[in-house]
Nucleic acid binder design. Structure first.
Length: 435
RNA sequence: GUGGGUGUAGCUCAAUAGGUCAGAGCACUGGGUUGUGGCCCCAGAGGCUGUCGGUUCGAGUCCGAUCACUCACCCCA
């Protein structure tokens, strides 16, 4: 029989990996809510037009990477390739500007892009996405980046850098664009075919080109920073000053351009050199004209997205997350203690201790083996002798020590002895709970 | 979308120049064992060698296609 397989580039996340996802999501929610962000959930499918208008008709995402299709009534829809457009759409649609609490949003979920799969790049991938509307103070730009760094640090992520740039605004960018076009026109013969095409549709993107020939040809090209209008220049300056003031390390990368048309002024990326070609772990920027362009109020906006697959790939390079192992394994010897053992197991579970037991009994040896395979931290042994005395033998598997504990004190005992709790990452220090 | 590499049990890998070739280790299940695990011993389960087609008396081994994975381009999170 031929078997049905998952779609190319769309992956199952198996139980072994799910712990990482939960840990990352939990940390993200903790941090985001600390900064005043509230969760919003929008549909995975939207009208195609929404993305065409926001991301840009001539971007690669819209031109050749979207999962677009007509539904049964012939309406053009698309699987969302990113989250910003949907969040902005929802904000406009529900008139959220009337709600003073509705300024900072986050959403976590799957995005879809039809690209050739590669390490850290999949057709269904997941993003943690944050958006803020209605504030144009550069203080916010800095805060957004500080939060991003805080989050990554909380996860213990190593080897990443923050790159920032300013793309100017509709007032100053056209000047630069024109000069750049002129420059590219002159250098046209030296450019690779891709760039020669790009210089017409989206000239800024030639800066992204990795072909040596192009990079050489670009030497002496006009630099965006020099074209920034007074407002943009001051804005950018303040962003940098705030970041420096908060001891956030960053690099100004004048050649960093983003692939979505809506970005302006501040843009930033968190990059790594440990993921091969997919070096961006997270990225975002300001998009002050977007909400107006989508038919809403003229409110500024800024946001970023983090690629969860990439993030988890990086985290897994560093260390292993021990999860799924029970804190305690209860071994029962003989028939009589079974009920008492079951009651103890339940009491422990209800107090937050993860407990497993041997179904079907068996020799102590076989139960110990079972406990070992499950990597239980402690084994509680309850046999007829112990039952008669009202105690249980508690063995610490790591230290190979054991003591007798009164059955009524078991819960108390483990509250003080559980070291590894679910979902925590060893070595990172405890993840503070939000409550 | 373009180019390179790979594809044998859950995992890591064997299988002389096409000819008992479908194997091993780990993991898994049961037992050795009615009171102290990780070792050891025994047994068991698990693959129509990614799939389809071709060459051949005969293909895991050669050829083609296809699918998947992977790396790079491209793109971006």
């Amino acid at each position: 029989m031929e078997r049905v397989q998952a779609i190319r580039g769309m992956n199952d996340i198996l139980p072994d990996a799910v712990h990482w996802w939960q840990m990352v999501e939990r940390t993200a929610r903790d941090v985001l809510e600390l900064y005043g962000y509230r969760e919003i959930r929008t549909p995975v499918v939207e009208k195609l037009e929404l993305f065409a208008r926001s991301i840009g008709e001539s971007t690669d995402i819209v031109e050749k990477e979207m999962y677009a299709f007509a539904d049964r009534k012939g309406q053009w829809l698309a699987l969302r390739p990113e989250a910003t457009a949907s969040v902005v759409r929802a904000f406009i649609e529900h008139n959220l500007q009337a709600d003073p609490l509705a300024r900072k949003f986050y959403t976590i979920g799957p995005m879809f892009r039809h690209e050739r799969p590669q390490k850290g790049r999949y057709r269904q991938f997941h993003q943690i996405d944050a958006e803020v509307f209605g504030i144009d103070d550069p203080l916010l730009d800095a805060e957004v980046m500080v939060m991003l760094c805080d989050f990554l640090q909380r996860l213990g992520l190593q080897g990443v850098g923050l790159h920032i740039n300013s793309l100017g605004c509709p007032r100053c960018r056209p000047l630069f664009r024109d000069d750049l076009k002129k420059f590219l026109h002159e250098r046209s013969p030296q450019l690779c075919p891709d760039c020669d095409r790009r210089r017409h549709v989206n000239p800024l993107r030639v800066f992204d080109c990795k072909v040596d020939r192009c990079r050489e040809a670009l030497a002496g090209a006009p630099e965006l920073v020099r074209y920034l209008c007074e407002d943009c220049a001051r804005h950018f300056e303040k962003v940098r000053a705030y970041l420096t003031g908060l001891d956030v390390a960053f690099t100004v990368d004048p050649r960093m351009v983003r692939g979505l048309d809506y970005y302006m002024r501040t843009t930033f990326e968190v990059v790594t050199d440990r993921l091969g070609a997919q070096n961006a772990v997270g990225g975002g920027g300001r998009y002050d004209g977007l909400m107006r362009d989508l038919g809403g109020p003229d409110l500024p906006g800024i946001g970023f997205a983090i690629g969860m697959e990439r993030l988890i790939l990086l985290l897994q390079q560093g260390r292993s997350l021990e999860a799924g192992a029970p804190d305690v394994f209860v071994a029962v010897l003989g028939e009589k203690p079974v009920l008492e053992a079951f009651r103890a197991v339940q009491a422990l579970r209800r107090s937050g201790v993860a407990v497993e037991m041997a179904y079907g009994g068996g020799s102590l040896k076989s139960q110990m083996r079972r406990a070992d395979k499950l990597a239980a931290a402690h084994v509680v042994i309850l046999g007829e002798e112990e039952l008669a005395k009202g105690v249980a033998v508690v063995r610490n598997m790591k230290e190979k020590s054991q003591t007798e504990v009164s059955l009524s004190d078991l819960v108390e005992y483990f509250k003080g002895h559980i070291v590894s709790s679910r979902g925590r990452t060893p070595g990172f220090g405890p993840t503070p709970s939000s409550r």
